[in-house]
């Protein structure tokens, strides 16, 4: 079963007949009103829940209360949205619920490894949302690039940092992970932004008249959406695509140069644990790119593969 067929199955299986009937009776343009007061109140409640949920030195029971408050606010908002009887089905609610729960846990989990794993969950749910929107190639690319490549790099860096601070230090959650910075102000700013965005989306939105055909099933399953996307990219967006390649190459060169730079250890140690220093050999002084140091040896001039 190919991916477009799966996408078609998902969209057709998720059509709610009652919602369709209600939409036909009330007309497609009648937005069930979500008043700004309700959005404001929900944002305030969710902000209080987030403040309670963010990692601090408080008891874990208070954090659980914050999580419950936040989940209730989300459920009320979802209920208000579901009242408007849109053409979204059960899969939209499942995927968006998983994605937003994962997002909240990324922000609020004290351990970085768990944050990264919850981010993988968010990425997979977002890929599900992309499939619901007929973007199956983007869903696959999202899973491959984000969950496959970027997150593995993140987890490697987390492991690198955790292993050099010692196993005993890694067992307890470090202080900078456990205490968040200015949770009240940050939640106020974030939920103010969220309230403004939701207000604009639901209240101030003029009914867009979509260009082209807007049938729920696009007109290109014969060719395949991925083929159409490839033709579009390589016919209309050639320069942008080449620029993307240049940007990726530049980023790779820059990352290698930055990560191999010599680090002086004579600086002031503030906030460090005062534990062991990193004794890895530094990048050699001469700019010979063949003399890559071998980590774990005392001789920084030793080469991995000596040119005989």
């Amino acid at each position: 079963m190919t991916v477009p067929m799966v996408a078609r199955f998902l969209t057709t299986a998720s059509v709610d007949p009652a919602g369709l009937i209600a939409q036909m009776t009330t007309g497609p343009g009648s937005v069930a009103p979500i008043t700004p007061i309700v959005v404001l109140a929900l944002c305030i409640v969710a902000g209080i829940g987030t403040v309670l949920l963010l990692p601090t030195r408080r008891e874990t029971s208070i954090r659980k209360i914050g999580g419950v408050v936040l989940a209730l606010a989300g459920l009320v908002f979802a209920g208000l949205l579901a009242r408007s009887q849109a053409g979204v089905g059960a899969y939209f609610w499942i995927f968006s619920g998983i994605a937003l729960t994962g997002a909240v846990r990324v922000v609020t989990h004290p351990r970085p490894v768990y944050s990264a794993l919850y981010f993988v969950m968010t990425v997979l749910a977002s890929a599900g949302l992309f499939i619901l929107l007929w973007a199956e190639f983007m869903a696959a690319a999202l899973v491959l690039i984000y969950a496959g490549a970027i997150l593995v790099t993140y987890v490697f860096v987390i492991m690198l940092a955790a292993s050099t601070t010692g196993a005993k230090a890694a067992a307890v959650v470090s202080e900078y992970d456990n205490v968040s910075r200015e949770p009240i102000f940050a939640s106020a700013i974030g939920f103010a932004l969220m309230g403004v965005l939701l207000f604009v989306i639901f209240d101030k939105s003029v009914p867009l008249t979509p260009r082209g055909d807007v049938s729920p099933v696009p007109a290109y399953p014969v060719v395949g959406g991925t083929q159409r996307l490839g033709a579009y990219l390589y016919q209309d967006q050639v320069v942008s695509l080449e620029l993307a390649g240049v940007i990726l190459t530049l980023a790779m060169v820059g990352a290698i140069v930055i990560a191999r730079r010599k680090v002086w250890q004579g600086g002031v140690q503030t906030g460090g644990t005062g534990g062991e220093q990193i004794t890895a050999p530094m990048t050699p002084v001469d700019d010979n790119p063949h003399s890559i140091p071998v980590y774990g040896t005392d001789n920084p001039r030793q080469k991995a593969w000596p040119e005989t």
Binding site: Q23, P28, G29, V31, L81, S84, Q85, A86, G87, V88, F92, S96, L133, I201, F202, S205, P207, L208, P210, V214, P216
Partner: peptide, 8 residues
Amino acid sequence: MSQLALQH
């Protein structure tokens, strides 16, 4: 895709 689903 209707206006409402876009808003969601």
